[in-house]
């Protein structure tokens, strides 16, 4: 469903800032792909470029979703097509309730697809269910979005949004960073319970430990903006054991 072809991306308005240096990747429906790599290899950039963040310039290549190029689409349009990015550092939005935010997001999506908006009553029910399932402190969701949330709480809140919005392609950008084992398990359970033949995941991570809980179909090693190796779940274990040095020296990247 998602295909990335020779993708080059740099930071907007900065010369010689190419971060992604030619990525090729194909994610079929129902698959879980893990993208691993050392710090600075371009993992988060890839996640953000996939979602259409404005401050990157795609200089070459293409991204297609179900055969259609999405490179010209804004982030909201990509979201309407079923894409979702769980953020590494979710933004704090003072005065905005998570409930209100998610209802608006769901309504925008329904509207873009010409579907009826969910009633407030049904949405409230769904929201309460998911709050419980994700294990967020119910008092927290009465506060401002992400404001004063701990790192773990922010990640759970991302999972809450994932559960409510039910995307067809979810990208998790280092959702495991800063999580304790319990929280990690909750994230993994969320992903596992949502795995279905119609939904794909791209899990971006630095460490292998999340993959103890989520078994990927495909693992990619990203180094210096390029995918240097692709394999099955066993690849993650190799990296865990041997580190990234082998790949770093192969690409000549600075450690």
């Amino acid at each position: 469903m998602l295909e990335i072809k020779n993708l080059h991306a740099s930071v907007l308005d900065i010369d010689d800032s190419e971060i992604l240096t030619g990525i090729d990747m194909k994610v079929n429906k129902g698959e879980v792909h893990a993208i691993m790599g050392p710090n600075g290899s371009g993992k988060s950039t890839l996640a953000n470029v996939l979602m259409g963040r404005f401050d990157y310039l795609v200089s070459e290549g293409d991204i297609t979703l179900d055969g259609e190029s999405i490179i010209e689409l804004r982030p909201d349009q990509r979201a309407h097509l079923g894409m979702f990015l769980a953020f590494q550092y979710p933004a704090e939005i003072p005065g905005v309730r998570p409930w209100q935010f998610l209802k608006t997001a769901l309504d925008s999506k329904a509207e873009s697809r010409g579907e009826d908006k969910m009633s407030v009553r049904n949405f409230s029910k769904l929201f309460d269910e998911k709050v419980e399932a994700v294990g967020i402190n119910p008092n927290l969701v009465k506060r401002s979005l992400n404001e004063g949330f701990s790192g773990g709480e922010k990640k759970r809140n991302e999972m809450l949004q994932l559960e409510v919005l039910q995307p067809s392609l979810a990208i998790l950008d280092e959702t495991d960073s800063g999580l304790d084992v319990d929280a990690l398990r909750i994230v993994a359970e969320g992903v596992n319970s949502m795995r279905s033949p119609a939904r794909s995941f791209i899990v971006v991570t630095h460490y292998q430990r999340l993959l103890n809980y989520i078994t990927p179909d495909v693992v990619h090693i990203l180094v210096a903006g390029k995918i240097v190796k692709t394999g099955g779940p066993e690849l993650a274990l190799e990296v865990e054991k041997d580190g990234y040095n082998e790949y770093l020296s192969a690409t000549g990247a600075n450690v």
Binding site: R74, D76, A79, I93, V96, L102, A105
Partner: peptide
């Protein structure tokens, strides 16, 4: 970007941030 990545248009996102 956070709000737009959830499907809000740029105007909706601004409005939400400002009224919040």
């Amino acid at each position: 970007f956070y709000l737009m990545a959830r499907g809000l248009s740029e105007e909706e996102a601004h409005h939400m941030i400002i009224t919040g």
